[in-house]
């Protein structure tokens, strides 16, 4: 279990509101989210479909602009950043893992993993060296020259994990990382995330409704209808994962 310094916030949101206009109707996806995330924390965002998990994820990751309220990453107000600074932040401070992997299909595993490093301005040699290091870490060192279509779902997601770690970010945002995987590979990915959290002291923020995540999370944020319903410490959650497995979709 990572030692958590409670004083140090890595992500803070304040009265976060997001509205979508669809077919002339305004839909409030987020209705004022207040959330403080500590450095090195493993904090799962839980909630049913349509509760606003992914929207929150996009706001925190700087992939979308909130309608109202602010997001602070390392005490920097995201709304104040221009495009170049935002790109810098995405490149070095945040790593992303997606439900559908989103690896670039025309590139090999190594090329995919090194792409963020290329954007960060590393030389080709540095990129390759660090890329191989990361692929070895996720256990795919021997498959570096394979294209995403030649890898299984779990392997693709592991490449995505290595990808997210490329520029040693302080936060990894994972949007339903196990959603497209079977139980076993999903468990592997969860274990991998936990390992990264422990060994590299990276803040992991998965948005999920996979109950397996609960077991290893430091805290769980329950979201319902755009509100934070409750925040639980792991110790408060009494769950038998084995029992719940049958409820997987």
């Amino acid at each position: 279990m990572a030692t958590v310094d409670k004083k140090e916030y890595v992500v803070r949101t304040k009265d976060l509101v997001k509205e979508f206009t669809m077919g002339g109707q305004t839909l409030r996806a987020l209705k004022g989210i207040q959330l403080d995330i500590y450095k090195g924390e493993y904090i799962s965002i839980m909630g049913p479909s349509g509760s606003g998990k992914s929207t929150l994820f996009n706001m925190v990751g700087g992939l979308d602009k909130p309608t109202d309220g602010t997001v602070f990453i390392n005490d920097v107000d995201m709304a104040q950043l221009d495009a170049q600074e935002l790109a810098f932040l995405r490149c070095r401070t945040i790593g992303y893992i997606f439900q559908s992997f989103n690896l670039i299909p025309v590139m090999t595993a190594l090329e995919n993993v090194t792409l963020p490093m290329v954007f960060a301005g590393l030389s080709q040699d540095e990129c390759n060296e660090r890329g191989m290091e990361l692929l070895n870490m996720v256990g795919l060192g021997d498959r570096y020259h394979h294209k995403p279509t030649e890898l299984s779902g779990g392997q693709q997601q592991r490449v995505a994990c290595a990808w997210a770690l490329a520029n040693a970010p302080s936060i990894i945002l994972a949007d339903e990382p196990t959603g497209n995987l079977d139980l076993k590979t999903g468990k592997e990915i969860i274990d991998l995330l936990k390992k990264l959290n422990k060994e590299n002291n990276v803040t992991i923020i998965p948005a999920t409704h996979d109950l397996k995540m609960l077991d290893i999370s430091d805290r769980i944020v329950w979201i319902r209808d755009g509100y934070v319903e409750r925040i639980e410490e792991r110790a408060d959650v009494q769950l038998q994962v084995g029992v719940m497995e049958n409820e997987e979709h």
Binding site: V76, C91, T93, M137, N200
Partner: peptide, 16 residues
């Protein structure tokens, strides 16, 4: 491997 970039108050600019 170690994480860096904690405690940044200003963000750098991404180079072309």
């Amino acid at each position: 491997m170690s994480t860096t970039s904690a405690n940044k108050t200003t963000v750098g600019r991404q180079a072309q």
